[in-house]
Design a protein around this nucleic acid. Structure first.
Lengths: 133, 133
DNA sequence: CCTAAATATGCCTTGACACGTATATGCTCT
DNA sequence: AGAGCATATACGTGTCAAGGCATATTTAGG
């Protein structure tokens, strides 16, 4: 009997560095387990286990190709993360600005993870602190 | 001696449900530890520990207010998550569509997660199956 | 200075998860 | 059917984070 414990949320799934590496690999194209294994220098069981977690969480799906399984991305969980981020978007930019950056990112669509330096932008939220009870 | 082990990535930070709850709380306004404690039904040490993790990861900053510490959000780590998501955006919609949905979300700013059905887009990599090495 | 309030930290236990090694399952071809 | 490749699963182990509980620290005010 195999117990699939918890791993409820998408956030726990992407918390694992190797899983993020697998996901990034699959952006370029679908890959077999062996291809992932060789590119990421992980053992085959490790790859398979992570793929299982990713599949059960809906991040990937597998296509049978003879003895191989080709894995490819599925969009829904990413949307879920994106939806969660929404509530915080107002903190790093106002509406129009966010739109522009969003567009900008999609125009370029760079495959590498861009570690961009961001300019801090003060939040526009005012708060009263002083009251002591 | 207190070891601050790893907790390197922002993804591990937001993997913890209580931390996400704290972050969501702080969207509306900055809060003291006690306020967070009572609203989220966590013990005070638990709240403090999570806040420490969040602070060291740059998700929040604290303002001293007498005996209280007021915590409020900082944008950078959220941007980092957003940047990571970028590489996957092509998977859930084309450019215009993404823009529309992005706008739509910001207009309504609905807190619920939208579970949209998407049309898959085939990868451009053909599988070479036959060759054995 | 002493006390109370608010928050931070230390120690300990527990449980989850990631990995390695070994093995099982599945598929193909001869 | 049997061999060989590709992938999945089982089991044991080590590590580390999260929380409970106790206590330290900080600040305000009498």
């Amino acid at each position: 009997m195999m117990y699939i414990k918890s791993m409820e949320s998408v956030f726990e799934i992407i918390a694992e560095p190797n899983r993020r590496a697998i996901l990034s690999l699959l952006v370029s194209s679908q890959q077999s387990v062996g291809e992932i294994e060789s590119q990421l220098r992980m053992t085959q069981p490790t790859v398979s286990k992570h793929l299982r977690v990713l599949r059960e969480a809906g991040f990937v799906e597998s296509l049978v190709d003879a003895q191989r399984r080709l894995y490819r991305l599925k969009p829904e969980p990413f949307q879920e993360v994106d939806a969660w981020l929404d509530q915080f978007r107002r903190f790093w930019s106002d509406r129009v600005d966010a739109l522009e950056r969003h567009l900008d990112r999609m125009e370029r669509s760079s495959p590498t993870k861009n570690k961009t330096e961001k300019v801090r932008r003060g939040s526009n939220r005012e708060r009263d602190k002083g009251e002591k009870k």
